[in-house]
Design a binder for these strands. Structure first.
Lengths: 250, 250
DNA sequence: AATATGATTCGGCATTATCGAATAATGCTC
DNA sequence: GAGCATTATTCGATAATGCCGAATCATATT
């Protein structure tokens, strides 16, 4: 791990949490002397990864990170394969669809298909949700044993609502169920009033690379078997397109 | 400029251009020995900025850059102010609307309002267009003299189509026109069949921070005065919301 | 099985980044 | 509007750090 590169990424991550920070705030947060931080930040600014507000002197993320993010989406094979099937799933079930991949202890949404009923919704691509509080996360974690152990080895499971699973034993038990079926469920665990059903997606090496989920208002929960089937079919189809030999794989 | 941080960003930029690269390809591109690149890449991988394909060993951008890009959009005041007015502009003119900010010698799209006629379109947020080949770019450059000089000091203006302005004299002349009116025009210069009208957006310090544009099929070009007026009004309104004292400022 | 290609590890060396101290810039207070 | 406080930035000596040649390991190819 090379020190200054590691520090530069931690600076970006700090700015990601706090939007705008003065140099000394960043320095304090990372427990580094201001001149050290300054050197790194200057380099980031030179590349547009960070911009400095002319008036306040504070720093924030810059446009170059947006370009990187956009290119990332373009390179993702999972995304290009999933888009058409996500649309199909949305049409069939009438619910919004999300496709996500793991990012440390979170899931990051790489595609979002709004509810077909035309409800005006926020675009959700790029947002992150704790793995333990989402069906998407559980669907992936069940087939990524290392990641699951790592998460459970941490201090504690992050709680988002009163319904979030925070007990490690209960969590492991749920993962066992997911491993058997390839499907994960969640009711009010991330956001109150929002539940979801997710299916794991595997790639050509039969490893879990992501998950696809429908987002259901809790008022319409639980969903019928046909809807669950549609999620299963979508996850299986996308996996097959990526070259997976069986579903669920693992 | 800190060497290793600079190199790490150049690695990310290389991956941005070539999607997937082997370690030695990256090393060759940056003219560095493979072990040097390896150390940096390892650090990037540890943070999810880059991922390594299990089978081929090749590297590509990772999900962490997407999160950064998403947070960048959230922090941008220009974007939050512009969305509602972009929607209004789209409704009034019937054309797709783009909002962009400068990024080195390009414009990067930070908001895209699709044509209201419901035509299924690619989401364009995050794509970049050369400043000299777009109305958005000209609208910004006219009020950023340093950036314009820097661009013209370069080897030559990038040509995208046969219509792209590549003559420095002609380009300067166009910028003079933009400076007088606050509006920039472009016909087939970036993409054949696509033309646009852009207005400069200024912030509370009366500096150009971005531009808003409508995208017009060349078959409907030129547009009528009312449409041009609508772009002017939108650019002026957004600038005022950001605290600009007059329009065009500069 | 042998070879070639490319990824990764190791470690000594010199470049390089680090950080204390000083300076400049900015904003606040009275 | 002067003086003070806060914060950003520059400079440079120091030694810590990352760099990269050589060796090793893993994988693909013939």
């Amino acid at each position: 791990m090379i020190q200054s590169v590691d520090r530069s990424i931690r600076i970006l991550t700090a700015l990601q949490g706090a939007r705008r920070m003065s140099l000394s705030e960043i320095a304090e947060r990372l427990e580094l002397p201001p001149p050290t931080v300054h050197g790194i930040v200057r380099t980031l600014v030179a590349h547009g990864m960070v911009v400095q507000d002319h008036t306040s002197g504070r720093y924030q993320l810059g446009p170059a990170v947006l370009r990187l993010g956009n290119v990332y989406l373009d390179t993702l094979e999972l995304r290009s394969r999933a888009v058409t099937w996500a649309e199909e799933l949305g049409r069939r079930t009438g619910f919004a669809v999300r496709v996500g991949v793991p990012l440390a202890e979170d899931v990051i949404i790489i595609h979002h298909e709004p509810r077909p009923d035309g409800t005006r919704q926020m675009p959700e691509v790029g947002i992150v949700i704790p793995t333990n509080a989402s069906a998407l996360g559980k669907a992936m974690l069940a087939f990524l044993p290392d990641a699951a152990d790592q998460l459970l080895a941490g201090p504690s499971l992050r709680s988002m609502t009163g319904e979030t699973i925070t007990d490690p034993g209960e969590f492991r038990k749920q993962l066992d169920d997911v491993r058997a079926s390839g499907l994960a469920f969640e009711c009010d665990e991330a956001v109150l009033g929002e539940s979801s059903v997710a299916g794991t997606v595997f790639d050509g090496t039969d490893l879990a690379v992501g998950a696809v989920a429908i987002v259901v208002p809790t008022s319409e929960w639980p969903v019928d078997d046909g809807t669950v089937d549609a999620v299963r079919t979508t996850a299986r189809t996308v996996s097959r397109e990526l070259g997976a030999s069986r579903w669920p794989a693992g």
